[in-house]
Design a protein around this nucleic acid. Structure first.
Lengths: 225, 225
DNA sequence: CACAACGGTAACAAATCCGTAACACACGCC
DNA sequence: GGCGTGTGTTACGGATTTGTTACCGTTGTG
């Protein structure tokens, strides 16, 4: 189920949004101030964020900027009472994807949200194939020539991160952030250790890696073919 | 350059949109009716489509539906004179990504368009090409005629610095600052040594450098071509 | 031409980095 | 509790990388 995070300080509005999104079949997280909202965003990695601009503590623009700074790319729809053109453009330039002015139609908001999530679903495949492997993310299954290869939860998340970013250079920090979580205390060498075990399970010759390549001083890079 | 297709039958409006998008640096295609618009969309595969709803022949909803039916997934922003909630929702459900009601701010439209294209651009990494080399920063890879050339971390950073400042005279101090870091203790001659090894890897004839030129008493200069 | 300054480069020692085995701990299960 | 599994840290060893030095050719200058 897709998760929507709603960050809004007006409790009446928040309740209304929450009920509507829940009724539409989403898993809903809510936050009443910027601090909490930002933490939820970084921690739970929702699929979509509804973000009010006028918030206590940190304002919506700042939250948007910080989320993008962390390289999180879920769609963000901003809400505001102001209808100023300059505000809208500022929001969009900071990395928001859409902008609605209060009062707005809740149905339209739901439709826009659905449009973003539909697009997102298109992009994310759930099975990847490389060499004679089939990696089914939805079913949490890795097979090689029909034979299943068992992976521990962390190995699974690591491989998932690798295949989703195949061909890209990944730093240990990026890996730690995505696979271990931004608030984990794990050290850099833990990445190496899990790469070793992953290699031992999928590489024909772990000493001459075919898929997971080491990038000295940087991290790793996954390449199929 | 990114291509935008504008489908709009009102010639004044079309002209205005075309000029603004062209001025913003896009390659612009225009169509005055649905038939032509659909053909352009299927043929030229633009990166973004601005689509008016009220069109002769085929209306905008139909075009949107047909485009999605062909599995083309570029973002579509719909324009309409009607502000009916039900129209907006219909449009979004048919596969449009955004919807603006006339009269709208052209600046806001540009900002929304930019937001969609920015998302798309995130995925494609920056690469530099010179002679028969391809230097892919995202994948951290240098290739010459499809064959990979291995670079040590420092060689990589040095080449990255050169490529990003191509055509500019670079002093050893600038190079040391950027590649080694401001708090490094490395001496000036270290730069020379790494230039030598870089040359040995990328210059056809290291004694007569094509790319990395020595500037006596100054430093070096990288020039492609 | 002699000389000095400069850059190219081979050689080497030191530093760094990574693969991996070993260990410690936490947790769930019987 | 005892056992097996999963996870994070540490330490060792080997491989690679890096900074320096020395030597030498080149260039510019008087």
């Amino acid at each position: 189920m897709e998760t929507v995070l709603i960050i809004e300080d007006d409790s009446t509005m928040l309740r209304g949004l929450k009920d509507n999104f829940a009724y539409a079949g989403y898993n809903v997280l809510t936050a009443a101030d910027g601090e909490a909202g930002l933490n939820y965003a970084l921690d739970a990695k929702p699929d979509l964020i509804i973000l009010d601009i006028m918030l206590p503590e940190i304002n919506g623009y700042e939250i948007c900027r910080l989320i993008r700074k962390e390289k999180l790319d879920m769609p963000i729809i901003m809400l505001t009472a102001k209808g100023e053109e300059s505000d809208i453009i500022l929001g969009l330039n900071l990395g928001a994807d859409d902008y609605m002015t209060k009062p707005f139609s809740i149905k339209e908001l739901l439709a826009r949200a659905a449009a973003f999530l539909r697009r997102r679903r298109q992009d994310q495949q759930d099975t990847y194939e490389f060499a004679d492997f089939v990696f089914d993310i939805g079913a949490r299954r890795l097979t090689r020539k029909k034979r299943e290869i068992k992976l521990s939860p962390k190995e699974y998340k690591l491989l998932e991160f690798f295949v989703k970013r195949q061909g890209k250079a990944l730093t240990r920090d990026e890996i730690l952030n995505d696979v271990w979580g931004y608030n984990s205390f794990a050290g850099h060498r833990s990445v190496d250790r899990f790469v070793t075990t992953l290699r031992s399970k999928i590489e024909p010759d772990p000493h001459n890696p075919t898929f997971i390549h080491t990038l000295r001083e940087i991290g790793y890079k996954f390449e199929p073919l």
